[in-house]
Structures are given as structure tokens and as C-alpha cells.
């Protein structure tokens, strides 16, 4: 695996297989920063949604992963593509809206799974979605497996 060890990485998103790499890298990075199991699962799921958006709607792109400093450690994920962009952001963020064949939970759902969420997109100029998550102050007592 090309990303073993570090938290910082830049991964291409061009195929199904790349989605798997993205999920595995985010899982590893979150675990390394001491995220709880539920926090890890939420973040990996959000990353999976966003990476799939990049692949399906943006025609492929990349994900950048970087650690965040703060009172508790965090992680920033940036998904970018050079695709057609999003014409109506509000609409795209609404639940149930879909331009593909998904459930229309991608963007809106991912937003609920992270702490910080921002989209930068213009028609024809690609899309960049940045999310940030911080480890919660309350480590779960049951997750010391």
C-alpha cells in the first residue's frame, strides 16, 4: 500500500479500486490520530461519499489528506476534480437530490458526518470539497480493543 505510515497523502481517484484505497487510507489516518471507532466509521463513510462524487460526477480527481493541529488532533480531506462543476449548490446539498443513480445522500449526508464542510464549485471550473473532523474529547471506554 502506497500510503502506509503517514497521515498526509495525495491519492488519485480514477476507479473503483481508488475508492477502496481512499477509504483504507482515511481509516488508517484516523486510527493513527486516535479517533474512536464510531468517529473513524463516520469519517471513512463521508470520504467514500465524496470520493465517489469526485469519480462519478467530476470524472475523476484526487484526495488530499492532511493532519490538523488544535486542542485535539484533526484531519482535513480535500477532494478536487476538473469536472463540469455544480450549477446549483443548494440543490446539490439537499437530501434526495441526485444527478446520478444514487440515493441522493452523497453531499448532504457527508456534510452531516463531519464538523467542517465547504464546497467550492463553478460550472465548468471543477469542484473542490473540503471537510475537517476533530477527534472528540471523550474517548470511548469500550474501544480499547
Amino acid at each position: 500500500m502506497q500510503t502506509a505510515g503517514g497521515v498526509s497523502a495525495c491519492l488519485p481517484i480514477h476507479s473503483d479500486m481508488d475508492l477502496v484505497w481512499v477509504r483504507q487510507h482515511v481509516r488508517q489516518a484516523a486510527a493513527q490520530l486516535g479517533f474512536g471507532l464510531v468517529e473513524q466509521t463516520k469519517l471513512v463513510t463521508a470520504a467514500s461519499e465524496l470520493a465517489r462524487n469526485t469519480l462519478v460526477h467530476g470524472g475523476g480527481g484526487q484526495m488530499e489528506c492532511a493532519p490538523l493541529e488544535g486542542r485535539s488532533p484533526g484531519l482535513r480531506l480535500t477532494f478536487s476534480d476538473d469536472g463540469p462543476g455544480i450549477a446549483d449548490l443548494d440543490q446539490a446539498l439537499r437530501d434526495g437530490y441526485t444527478s446520478g443513480d444514487g440515493l441522493g445522500m452523497g453531499l448532504g449526508g457527508a456534510r452531516r458526518l463531519v464538523h467542517d464542510f465547504s464546497v467550492d464549485s463553478r460550472p465548468g471550473a471543477g469542484t473542490t470539497v473540503t471537510v475537517a473532523v476533530w477527534k472528540s474529547g471523550a474517548p470511548r471506554p469500550r474501544e480499547e480493543r
Binding site: 471507532l37 464510531v38 473513524q40 466509521t41 463516520k42 463513510t45 461519499e49 437530501d95 440515493l103 445522500m105 448532504g108 449526508g109 457527508a110 452531516r112 458526518l113
Partner: peptide
């Protein structure tokens, strides 16, 4: 799994 169930609910599914 619990973590999966919690995430799905949070996702709105």
C-alpha cells in the same frame, strides 16, 4: 455493527 448503524442513521439512511 453499531458504528455502521450509527453512521447510516447520521447519513440519513
Amino acid at each position: 455493527r453499531p458504528a455502521v448503524a450509527i453512521t447510516l442513521v447520521e447519513l440519513g439512511l
